[in-house]
Design a protein around this nucleic acid. Structure first.
Length: 499
RNA sequence: GGGGAUAUCGUCCAGAGGUUAGGACGGGGGAUUUUCAGUCCUCAAACCGGGGUUCGAUUCCCCGUAUCCCUACCA
């Protein structure tokens, strides 16, 4: 039987990195096994605020960014269409009826108030919380229905609940955690169909997974507890349950489920910050999975597909390590062709107002020349504005100069003669190349009787406004004669007036 | 309260019934040098506790502890 797996996000917001990791695991498994990867939208929660249409777009964008193309989903359609649960309502209702008919489910007329009161009392008495199965008894149910009908003057709303067997056990076969045995007495009579006619997760996912021919359910560990309920529904419907795999959750640095308070958790935020798809993909896969004995960490997608297996997934939660992600992103930036990084950096430069939108050919050429100098230094694409800003900004001493840098290097006694010589020599330099610039600087250092570093450092501050950056002479070569000399003059002019 | 899962460096992962317990990120030191980054070399850093099983357990079993997840007409 061919493997069919699914990623089933809910549009309750923008997808979380943990969800995308699950999607990646599903996709890798499908590719590895030569099966199909299906994406299904679980939009059965109509509670105000929990249905976020823009979330759907983010789901599509995130998958696209990672290079994951589903074999079947609402965009492509497919043999099991529709792939959106709100368009499959009759299917769930039909199966709910079937479960009622076979005695595996029953209607419940209990009010929210009664349920709430019941829960309060259970908690107060430190009893086990859960539905007391009032309506499971036909007489009690009919009495409840009649009373409610009288009160409302019409047929009362009801939900459909699963009639969990009163004894026995349910086994969940999990490929990561092994077989897990649940005592049916610990299982609640879960609501399957809500009073608004929409199914709950348990019913919808079960019906869809079966109808869509899903063979392996790979989803976050927070779903583990619901697995026995799904197995019970499968059995009640006379179906064979699929295999499960529950990768552990991703935690924040405080070892709590990764959430808002931990900073960026939504996938699109990482995209905005300038993380490359391959870095995100590689990092997320490694967060909870390893290829075993080989100590490789950087994998291409084909390599990951070739090595992937569910039993390589670890059994305990992983803390999201932002530092390691940054390192990995830096690695992928460094090993990318410069031209690619140029293209990816443009939006950030435009947004920062450093170049026009659209950029001129001249600006493009300038960026193309700057990039090789900064590529090794970038951890995220968004850092380009910080790193290379001085190439674009108008530096006019002391405007745009880092105060500490000025204090550290522009107080030297030889500053003025040095600048005068540099301006003279550079203005007359026939070839504006890093080699020539350096040669001249060496000569000036010798001439002034100072160490080469005592020329380099002040010159860097004068021309870039800062103490750190790429090699000085490469920087000046790209910066150009005009900007270089203008910046030197601005310092010289100001320095003269202050002295 | 109930149910479930998990437990190796600070973090992410390896590992084997007997190992100097390995790699990566991060951290320390060094080299390169013109700062930063990068690169290279190098150092420090861990088997939750208690019982078993065994000649020998960090590894297998049990208990404890801790942590997390679930315990909705949310997914």
């Amino acid at each position: 039987m061919p493997v069919r797996v699914r990623y089933a996000p809910s549009p309750t917001g923008s997808p979380h990195v943990g969800n995308l990791r699950t999607a990646i695991y599903n996709w890798l498994f499908a590719r590895k096994e030569g099966g199909q990867f299906i994406v299904r939208l679980e939009d059965t929660d109509r509670t105000p605020g929990r249905y976020v249409p823009e979330g759907i777009w983010d789901i599509e964008e995130s998958l696209r960014y990672l290079g994951i193309v589903p074999d079947e989903w609402w965009i492509s359609g497919g043999p099991a269409a529709p792939y959106v649960q709100s368009e499959r309502l009759p299917l769930y209702q039909e199966h709910a009826e079937q479960l009622i008919a076979s005695g595996h489910a029953y209607r419940c007329y209990c009010t929210k108030e009664r349920l709430e009161a019941m829960r309060q009392e259970q908690q107060a008495n430190k009893q086990l919380t859960g539905y007391d199965r009032h309506c499971r008894n036909p007489e009690q149910r009919e009495a409840m229905r009649a009373a409610r009908a009288l009160e409302l003057g019409h047929e009362p709303p009801s939900v459909v609940r699963l009639a969990v067997p009163e004894e026995g056990t349910t086994i969940v076969h999990d490929l990561i955690k092994g077989d897990i045995v649940y005592d049916n007495r610990t299982q609640d009579d879960q609501v399957l169909l809500k009073s608004d006619g929409f199914p709950t997760y348990f019913l919808a996912a079960t019906v869809d997974d079966h109808l869509m021919g899903i063979t392996h359910i790979i989803r976050g560990d927070d779903w583990l507890s619901s697995a026995p309920k799904m197995v019970l529904i499968y059995e009640a419907l006379g179906w064979t349950p699929p295999l499960f795999a529950h990768p552990p959750l991703i935690f924040g640095p405080d070892k709590k489920k990764l959430g808002k308070r931990h900073g960026s958790t939504q996938f699109v935020e990482f995209v905005d910050q300038g993380y490359l798809p391959e870095a995100l993909f590689n990092f997320l896969v490694l967060l909870g999975w390893s290829a075993g004995e080989e100590n490789q960490e950087i994998f291409s997608i084909p390599e990951m597909i070739a090595r992937f297996s569910l039993d390589g997934i670890s059994e305990h939660p992983a803390i999201f390590d932002y530092e390691k992600l940054k390192w990995m992103n830096g690695h992928y930036i460094r090993t990318s062709p410069p031209g690619r990084i140029v293209g990816l950096c443009l939006p950030y430069l435009i947004k920062a107002g450093l170049i026009s939108d659209p950029p001129t050919l001249e600006q493009l050429e300038y960026v193309r020349r700057i990039l090789p100098l900064e590529q090794d230094r970038m951890k995220t694409l968004s850092e380009i504005t910080e790193l290379a800003g001085f190439f674009f900004e108008d530096l006019d001493y002391p405007q745009g100069y880092d105060e500490k840098a000025v204090k550290k290097w522009l107080g030297a006694a030889h500053l003025r003669p040095m600048l005068e010589r540099e301006i003279a020599a550079y203005a007359a330099l026939p070839e504006w190349t890093a080699e020539e610039l350096e040669r001249v600087a060496q000569e000036i250092a010798a001439d002034l009787g100072v160490k080469f570093a005592e020329v380099v450092h002040p010159t860097r501050v004068v021309t870039t406004g800062r103490t750190v950056g790429p090699g000085l002479f490469e920087t000046l070569e790209v910066l150009g004669r005009e900007r270089t000399i203008a910046r030197m003059r601005s310092v010289l002019a100001r320095e003269l007036s202050t002295l």
